[in-house]
Design a protein around this nucleic acid. Sequence first.
DNA 1: AAAAAAC
Length: 479
Amino acid sequence: MTQFNELNLSPKVLQAVEEAGYTIPTPIQAGAIPPALEGKDVLGIAQTGTGKTASFTLPMITKLARGRARARMPRSLVLCPTRELAAQVAENFDTYSKNVKLTKALLIGGVSFKEQDLLIDKGVDVLIATPGRLLDHFERGKLLLTGIEVMVVDEADRMLDMGFIPDIERIFSLTPFTRQTLFFSATMAPEIERITNTFLQAPVRIEVARQATASETIDQHVVMFKGSRRDRADSEKRRTLRKIIEEEGEKLTNAIVFCNRKVDVDVVAKSLKKYGVDAAPIHGDLDQSTRTRTLEGFRQGELKILVASDVAARGLDVPSVSHVINFDVPSHAEDYVHRIGRTGRAGREGKAITICAPKDEKNLEDVEKLLQKEIARLDDPGKPKKSAETKSDAEAAPQKTEETAAEPSKTVEKPAQTPKTAEKPATSAKPEKGSGGRSRSRGGSKDRGKSDKDDNKVVGMGDHLPSFIAMSFEERRAS
DNA sequence: AAAAAAC
């Protein structure tokens, strides 16, 4: 098996890698580092969690160790779609460049220009940036990109989703065409293919395809939710969420609750807190210091539940969480895969529960189409059950209890008609055996777990790379 | 329809 010391990395970089505890590169690292060191363009098709970040930081540090940056003329540039990702990449540089004299600047929004300007003026070897802030600096005349030797585009497909492609194209055009380009994307949409054809020169293409799939390592469930009345649906949905959290009990050690909209992130987080659940919101409207602090608290295990918009769905290197709960079904089916990919990492157990309101059913269909399987239905634990009479009624026609059933929202009643779940008072958090009927992952996972551990800093999704992402182009076209 | 990202 290839080892890091066979990849021609500089001794100082190698030392930092070894000190971080790694000896065996991941496939994307083994594939991308040698051509990157030779100065070739690289097209990496890989998901977060494959060791992607180190596959460009390590060769970059090796190459940049020689030479020095001039004022306002950075020698390399890494573009990331979100501020958090950019910060993560910066940390990765710190880890591996500790034995090398290398200056770097993190150019992201939400923080003052002042410090960033100061760094740029002094000259930086590595610029890590989100597109908006980078262009902002450029337009203020503070920055010249004509000295860029290496440019990295990270998470290009997400850049596409976020409408950054024009910015990326502009930035490409501001850098010298002699630059080396390292380009990473989880998928290859036609638009991404076009960009790579335009801006990459004879790239070495590294595609990471893995066997394991999301659907096999994550225990997935969906709760079909229906509010009793329009004006109560919102609060009832939050109650359903609380009940889900209660029912998971101690198995839920930490979780991310995803909402589709920022307002809901705020409302849900506030609601959970009100009911004594340790939760905090994160989304793009919160100021950067709050975002950073919240995320850090969550990483440190000081915060139990992170209520998040899709800012946290992809790429973020949060620790493996025990649960992902979708307060809403994401409207892009692929986001579902990214969201649930925050759990069950490195071969550990993971559980994903999605709340599906009637208006989300179309989205749920799309998700199931993408997964090519049905997600196990769970009864709504938040639905107050009435008398035994209604109970059998509900069993016969669970769907039918809408307008007519104006149910007292505060009353706690015993849950009925839940075959798998033991009956319990609402306050008890009794563990329930996962009943989704999904078989666990196959062999291999132990092995993976080990190498994921080896590569803790950069590994994200671990074992359960979703099958559609793991497929090669040919397979994808075929299906 | 929303989120992310620039002030």
